[in-house]
Amino acid sequence: MQNNEIIRQLIDKKIVTISPDKDFVYASGMHSPIYTDLRQTISFPKLRQAIAENLAALIKQEFPEVTVIGGVATAGIPHAAWVAQVMNLPMVYVRSKPKDHGQGRQIEGRLSMDDHIVLIDDLISTGGSVLSAVQAVKETGAHVDGVSSIFTYLLPDADENFKKADTKFAPLLNYRELIEQEIAETVSEEQYKELLAWHQDPWNWKR
């Protein structure tokens, strides 16, 4: 399954929803004409397999020294498991914070200082949560080669945050690809302009 087919599946299955009339409001308070719920991908075997295979191919290309695949809690964990299986690599996952009991681990699985890890999350908006996981892995002494995701909005905040963290980011799908594909299929020219306007200034966007 090619990336454009994955995008089509995400929209057809209403995992990605473009709203022509009513804004979505994110937890951050940002208003948007698009909502992405990639957690739903786990319910569709063919789709999740295609995502895993395409992510694995991307990671091999962008991070050739990778020795461990890491999942970022919680939505990145299942996808990391499937990618690790495709690549026949070990896997770990990173909690949002250390456990408050037992051995107090934040990272589950085995890592060594010789390992090169790529962390996977489902969606990147500003990159804040995944970069916290990057920092947690770096504190173990392992080398973080970079981050990959199923989808990113390509927001300026994310670009700035990844640059500050000196961390390479390689997404499978991005917002521009999605809206360019939709303008050719289902989105009107006026709706396309709204989608583009939001992307250019999401924090100040008004429909």
Results as ranks from 00 to 15, higher is better:
Ala52Lys: 09
Leu55His: 08
Ala56Cys: 03
Ala57Asp: 14
Ala57Arg: 09
Ile59Glu: 09
Glu62Met: 10
Phe63Thr: 00
Phe63Val: 03
Pro64Met: 04
Glu65Ala: 13
Thr67Lys: 02
Thr67Cys: 07
Val72Ile: 11
Thr74Lys: 08
Thr74Ala: 14
Ala75Met: 02
Pro78His: 07
Ala80Met: 13
Ala81Gln: 10
Trp82Arg: 12
Val86Cys: 11
Met87Phe: 06
Met87Pro: 08
Asn88Asp: 15
Leu89Ser: 06
Pro90Ala: 07
Val92Leu: 13
Val92Ile: 15
Tyr93Trp: 15
Tyr93Met: 08
Pro98Phe: 01
Pro98Trp: 01
Lys99Pro: 14
Asp100Gln: 15
Asp100Arg: 15
His101Leu: 10
Gly102His: 09
Gln103Thr: 10
Gln103Asp: 08
Gln103Trp: 07
Gly104Lys: 04
Ile107Val: 12
Glu108Met: 10
Glu108Thr: 12
Gly109Gln: 07
Gly109Phe: 02
Arg110Ala: 12
Leu111Val: 08
Leu111Arg: 00
Ser112Phe: 08
Asp114Ser: 08
Asp114Gly: 01
His116Val: 03
Ile117Asn: 07
Val118Ser: 04
Leu119Ile: 11
Ile120Tyr: 06
Asp121Phe: 04
Asp122Phe: 04
Ser125Gly: 07
Ser125Trp: 01
Thr126Cys: 11
Thr126Leu: 06
Gly127Leu: 03
Ser129Tyr: 03
Val130Pro: 01
Val130Arg: 00
Leu131Lys: 05
Leu131Cys: 06
Leu131Arg: 02
Ser132Val: 05
Ser132Tyr: 03
Ala133Ser: 11
Gln135Phe: 01
Ala136Leu: 04
Ala136Gln: 01
Ala136His: 01
Lys138Thr: 14
Glu139Lys: 15
Thr140Tyr: 10
Gly141Ile: 08
Ala142Glu: 05
His143Cys: 11
Asp145Val: 10
Asp145Tyr: 04
Asp145Arg: 00
Asp145Gln: 11
Gly146Asn: 04
Ser149Met: 10
Ser149His: 06
Ile150Trp: 02
Phe151Glu: 12
Thr152Gln: 10
Thr152Phe: 10
Tyr153Thr: 05
Tyr153Val: 11
Leu154His: 03
Leu154Arg: 01
Leu154Phe: 00
Leu154Ala: 11
Leu155Tyr: 02
Leu155Trp: 03
Pro156Tyr: 08
Asp157Ala: 09
Asp157Trp: 00
Asp157Leu: 02
Asp159Asn: 10
Glu160His: 09
Asn161Thr: 04
Lys164Pro: 01
Asp166His: 12
Thr167Ala: 14
Lys168Arg: 12
Lys168Trp: 09
Ala170Gln: 05
Ala170Trp: 05
Ala170Glu: 06
Arg176Thr: 14
Arg176Trp: 14
Glu177Gln: 15
